[in-house]
Design a protein around this nucleic acid. Sequence first.
DNA 1: GTCTATATAGGGATAGAC
DNA 2: GTCTATCCCTATATAGAC
Lengths: 233, 233
Amino acid sequence: MNSTSAPEPAQPTERIPAAERREQILAAASRVFGERGYSGATTDQVARVAGISQPYVVRMFGTKENLFLEVLARALDRLVTSFRQIIQEPREAGPAATELLASRLGAAYVDLIEDRGILLSLMQAFISGHNPVIGAKARAGFLEIYRMLRDEAGFPPDTIREFLADGMLFNTLLAIRLPDIFHEDPAAAELMRCTFRGKLDVVLDATAAESTDADAAPAPPAAGHVDAAKDDK
Amino acid sequence: MNSTSAPEPAQPTERIPAAERREQILAAASRVFGERGYSGATTDQVARVAGISQPYVVRMFGTKENLFLEVLARALDRLVTSFRQIIQEPREAGPAATELLASRLGAAYVDLIEDRGILLSLMQAFISGHNPVIGAKARAGFLEIYRMLRDEAGFPPDTIREFLADGMLFNTLLAIRLPDIFHEDPAAAELMRCTFRGKLDVVLDATAAESTDADAAPAPPAAGHVDAAKDDK
DNA sequence: GTCTATATAGGGATAGAC
DNA sequence: GTCTATCCCTATATAGAC
């Protein structure tokens, strides 16, 4: 309380290579943007989750919009990479081949969006059609997936439509956190069973381990405790 | 420039009953929240679209969150009402009855979300699972629809799933403004045709008439012009 | 590579006049 | 019923030290 001065230099953050720090920030930003939305998230929250100072975040990415764009690109990239890899795996021919591939891709998709950062960054982008920059990226990304399914996976249009529709339902159910009330509401359980089928357990498991803590203290050194615990609104 | 004083009382807005004004504000808020998101929207933008002053908006709804909640409730209400009405219409029995009803409900849904305010208010709510108040409303609303389809429409689980999945795909394609590039991108056209089918024309038509103008001048009296035209970022 | 300090703007909400 | 004025907090971004 009355120490002569020394404004607590806040743990002199470890000095690590920029590239690595970049990754940390992107990971943190993905989670924070996911929880609070593009406008709702603050660079300060991102900084806290990443364990560094707010100005450093801005320093590294120039602007908040820029940061979001990188987060979005990263999410799309993971999605595309994951899909392409599965498509290129050797697969048996036969009538059920398409169906089997679709189900593999679906499973991979669920695994991906288990990461709320990825899920919600994508959804954030979807509802930003109004924003010229973000909106354009969202459209381009969506169509890239469409073309991949058509040209690389060889899906017929209706299969693509069904696949995408299922994906959007996955998105929504996870976004509204239906798994949270799986045990309280029978209707929720029914809908989830019928939607996620074999993947139900994965979805339910992931429900436990989470919480972003964009508020509260800085993160990195497993410090004892800090005063903080500011807003949460 | 050098008028003695008189800070331009800004058209002395017409004095109308509170209930009516309420509706105006809700309509305006629906559009603004839809375009900018919950956090991205400002009460001032809502006020401008409604043609009144910012403090009055706050006055009437207490807080911004409250205003959003009312917008959301209004959207859900319209949805529920519209569906219920269709379900209760007399319908022929027979094997194709379920399918026919589903297609009618689907068409009604597209009509509803043609209103970007409604569409995006719903989607905003979906991605606010994190917010205890809004998130809870979103879950409750979604499950209400589910139960209605199950208990009132008598749909089997898989039909419900497909129906909801299609709906979520509608949402997404409209949210990212795919109709905007219908003529520029063949893949976009393909996907939209196959998704919206008979409703394609409706979706494409509505694409023209829009733009919120939350920025720029006040609205109501067809005034000559005003300076304004502020941000737009 | 990372921080502290701070300029500066924006936005929600309140007070009180008309 | 509606506005003007305005308080005050929050958030992005910049400057510059270490």
